[in-house]
Nucleic acid binder design. Structure first.
Length: 485
RNA sequence: GGCCCGUUGGUCAAGCGGUUAAGACACCGCCCUUUCACGGCGGUAACGGGAGUUCGAUUCUCCCACGGGUCACCA
């Protein structure tokens, strides 16, 4: 497919849950690598010791396993460029940071952290760090190091000129170097910043294509400069349009925790299928050549995936559409798999008279989310309280009076049935309708209300009766007759 | 606020100088039907504004407006 080797990586921070935007980045990186027969790497970026969350790495691994985004190198599977966890590579970063100082592309900074504080919300930025230590003499630096003063290492940005880089999605982007701050590469605690270690790792691990959200677009010149300083070839940059969420006030912003259930785990718990989620987010920011919308496998997606199908503009996450995809995928599931998948969501114990498989078969085609199963199943367990007015049906011109008549006529027929099964029930009832000289639909309508207590049900009267069985059905019809008297 | 990026129906989006401006979700209608759903058919709905370039701009350029992102010893 491509003459050049393609190596991509997914490099999340174990700082909480796997967000859906993050998952999409992983998906695209995976697809690009697979499309070209390349390598997909997983790297854990745990250099922020404050934000570290205990089980977050497990969440990441679980997510990749569940979604089938298998990686060729990374924690657990190893590879030629390990370790793949940044906290285990500290000596490497220090070595390269020192190399940069030697090359005159970085410098020690002994200034207090307060010298460059985050600007107050709403306040215009003053200008950041004033580069005080950039101009320290070699002797001053030596003296302070010898005195054991704490320090950070900063990148020395060009003071004038322009840095240009090429992005595969956005094209050429030029930045005035005077806009770039002397960012910290190595923190006082000895850990590197993302700004530094991701560059070192990407180079060392042979990453050829860097995929990430556009929130990194404005800082990419700094990374490109880092590559240049080392004399390394820059990777291909592929910046992905952001996934947006709607805020309470109707505005949109970067999808994050405040928009509700947008973590992969939350979606699973809410009854979404992994493949449906993947299918939906694949299309948020990317479109295949022929605008195909449904994909049957990751392999099929990988075959179609190309960078030129990635869009530039941010997209709003639409739960309704995800829901539709989910329904599609649920319906597509072979019944045994559906029955298996629905299990964890069946929380209400079912009475003996309910034939579970038959009930599930009825529900299979009518669920958008697995978590809806209990709610849809409830009337099988127990008839909800209902008004006799439910029996009235305009289209079939049924009155309560007629309903009583129909049910009274149906009861003995049902009681006399030897075979309690859908087709037999249906046949018996249509025959009865002919005898009563009424439309089958009218009779079946009344029967359906009687055995369900609901206006809208999954399946018709005879199907429901087949599910709940003879005794319960007769019980419900008699109860309905009482109600109507 | 500076800088960067974006702007096709409510949403996701195709389009890459000449089209009746695709398709999907949602919505509406009809059909199918043992209610609903599924399925089938059909419908409503879009190129932010203004200048250029051109025989011709949704497509190219510029300006404006709007939206978003970013300015950390977070990633």
């Amino acid at each position: 497919m491509s003459a050049t080797r393609v190596v991509t990586r997914f490099a999340p921070s174990p700082t909480g849950y796997m967000h859906i935007g993050n998952l999409r980045t992983a998906l695209y990186a995976y697809l690009l690598a697979r499309h070209h027969g390349g390598t997909f790497i997983l790297r854990i970026e745990d250099t922020d010791r404050q934000r570290l969350v205990a089980d977050a790495t497990k969440v990441i691994l679980d997510t990749l396993r569940i979604t089938g985004l298998s990686y060729d190198e990374g924690p657990g599977v190893g590879g030629p460029h390990g370790p793949y966890v940044q906290s285990e590579r500290l000596d490497i970063y220090r070595r390269y940071a020192l190399e940069l100082i030697e090359k005159g592309a970085a410098y020690y900074c002994f200034c207090a952290k307060e010298r460059q504080e985050e600007p107050e919300p709403g306040e215009a930025l003053g200008g950041g760090y004033d580069r005080h230590c950039r101009y320290l003499s070699k002797e001053e630096v030596e003296a302070r190091l010898a005195a054991g003063m704490p320090y950070v290492i900063r990148q020395k940005m060009p003071l004038d000129g322009t840095t240009v880089f090429y992005d595969e999605v956005f094209g050429e982007i030029a930045t005035e170097n005077k806009e770039l701050q002397d960012q910290v590469l190595l923190k006082a605690d000895g850990y590197p910043t993302y700004n530094f270690c991701h560059v070192v790792d990407d180079y060392l691990m042979g990453v050829t294509h860097v995929l990430r959200g556009t929130e990194y677009l404005t800082s990419t010149p700094k990374y490109a400069l880092l590559y240049d300083s080392f004399g390394w070839p820059r990777p291909h940059y592929v910046h992905l349009p952001l996934m947006m969420g709607r805020n309470g006030d109707g505005s949109v912003s970067k999808l994050s925790k405040r928009h509700g259930s947008v973590s992969f785990a939350d979606l699973l718990a809410d009854g979404f299928l992994p493949q449906a989620i993947l299918n939906y987010i694949a299309l948020l920011g990317w479109c295949p050549k022929d605008s195909q919308t449904e994909f049957y496998s990751l392999a099929e997606l990988a075959e179609l995936f190309t960078v030129d199908g990635i869009s530039k503009s941010p997209s709003v996450f639409d739960f309704d559409k995800l829901l539709w995809f989910n329904g599609e995928y649920i319906r597509r599931l072979p019944f045994p798999e559906f029955a298996q998948a629905i299990k964890p969501f069946l929380r209400t114990p079912l009475p003996d008279f309910v034939d579970l498989d038959r009930a599930l078969a009825l529900l299979h085609g009518r669920l958008d989310k697995l978590s809806l199963i209990d709610e849809k199943m409830a009337f099988f367990v127990q008839v909800p309280p209902y008004e006799t007015a439910l029996f009235c049906n305009k289209k079939n011109k049924v009155t309560e009076e007629q309903a009583r008549g129909y049910l009274a006529a149906a009861l003995p027929v049902l009681e006399g049935l030897t075979e309690w099964e859908g087709a037999a029930l249906y046949q018996a009832m249509t025959e009865l309708a002919a005898r009563l000289d009424c439309k089958p639909a009218a009779l079946l309508w009344c029967l359906r209300i009687a055995v369900s207590g609901l206006l809208v049900t999954p399946g018709g009267a005879t199907e429901i009766m087949a599910v709940i069985g003879r005794d319960e059905s007769l019980l419900r019809v008699r109860a309905a007759l009482d109600k109507l008297s």
